[in-house]
Amino acid sequence: MMPRAELLKDVIADLRMAASFVTILPVASSKPAGDGAIARATWALPVAGLLVGLAGALVYKVASRLGLTPNLAALLALAATALITGALHEDGLADTADGLGGGRTRERKLEIMRDSRIGTYGVCALILSFGLRWSALATIANPWAVTLALCAAQIAARAGVPAFMSLVPPARPDGLSASAGPPPGRSVAIAFALGTLALALALGPGKALVGLILLSLAGVLLARLAIRQIGGQTGDILGAFEQLGEILILLVAAAFQIGR
């Protein structure tokens, strides 16, 4: 059995590694990124998501205290989450939309996804993503309820990423997703448990179940589409999956008006 001190050191290293991938915070792990370390650290992605959610919630709270409307406060909160993540997942969503929406061959689709320029499909995807999330937060309005919704969405959206990586093969032999490798079952299980717990605490058991079903359906549909068109997943596909998760959980939260 691993000594507690060593176990704690590994946990902290995994948390720092996850935070360094999800955010722009200067918390890079001292653990080497090779030998499956990135894949093992994926269990901590939901924890990193909590940081993002809290940042957005704090901005929303301050904006509300300053007398700004829910619409403006929601827009500022989303800007904060995009800023702290470096718009990483939004970039993945845009590239995925451009790649899967354009190009006739697998090679051309992958080439489009690697292109740093954004196309019409990508612009439309970003408008829909920000618009739906903004509308959902503005509908919730109550600062405490927004905090619950944001944190649940940020956590749960990342909780399914390890499972997606494990079940869907990489589309190409190079790239971050391929080099990271499939996460071990333990990391997948811990991430899933953290996401489920976050949904249950924020939305309640029944609504959490709705959220889990929607996330699962979105994951299956995206996986089928990615496998059919480009042969598997890439880092951009994972970013798109995270964005879909955020949207769905915030819509569920808005529909059920949590916290009121």
Rank of each mutant, 00 (worst) to 15 (best):
S187I: 04
P46R: 15
D10M: 01
V168M: 05
K109R: 15
R114F: 04
A41D: 06
A171E: 02
L209P: 06
I237Y: 02
L78S: 03
R172L: 03
D236V: 00
G101Q: 09
E111G: 02
L45H: 07
T81D: 11
I112N: 01
L128T: 11
R4W: 02
V11K: 02
L244M: 14
G259L: 08
A178L: 01
D98H: 08
I213N: 14
E242F: 11
L244Q: 11
E242C: 13
E246H: 08
G131S: 10
G102P: 01
L54F: 14
P173N: 12
G232H: 02
V123N: 07
R65S: 10
D95E: 04
S187E: 04
A254M: 06
L217K: 09
V146K: 05
L221K: 11
A39H: 02
V52R: 15
A39R: 03
L176Y: 03
T147P: 09
I258F: 04
A138N: 09
V52N: 14
I155K: 09
N142E: 14
A97Q: 10
A74S: 15
G235R: 00
W134I: 07
G181T: 09
S29G: 05
P143S: 03
L217G: 11
L132V: 15
E90D: 13
G102W: 04
L76I: 03
L203Q: 01
R260W: 12
G185K: 12
L225Y: 02
A180V: 01
L68E: 08
F130R: 13
L88F: 14
R114D: 04
V27D: 04
V27A: 08
L176Q: 00
I112F: 01
A202I: 11
S166F: 13
A73H: 08
G204W: 11
K31Q: 01
A208G: 12
A33H: 08
A13S: 08
V123S: 07
S129C: 12
S216Y: 15
G49S: 04
S187M: 05
R16Y: 00
A171G: 05
A41K: 06
L54R: 11
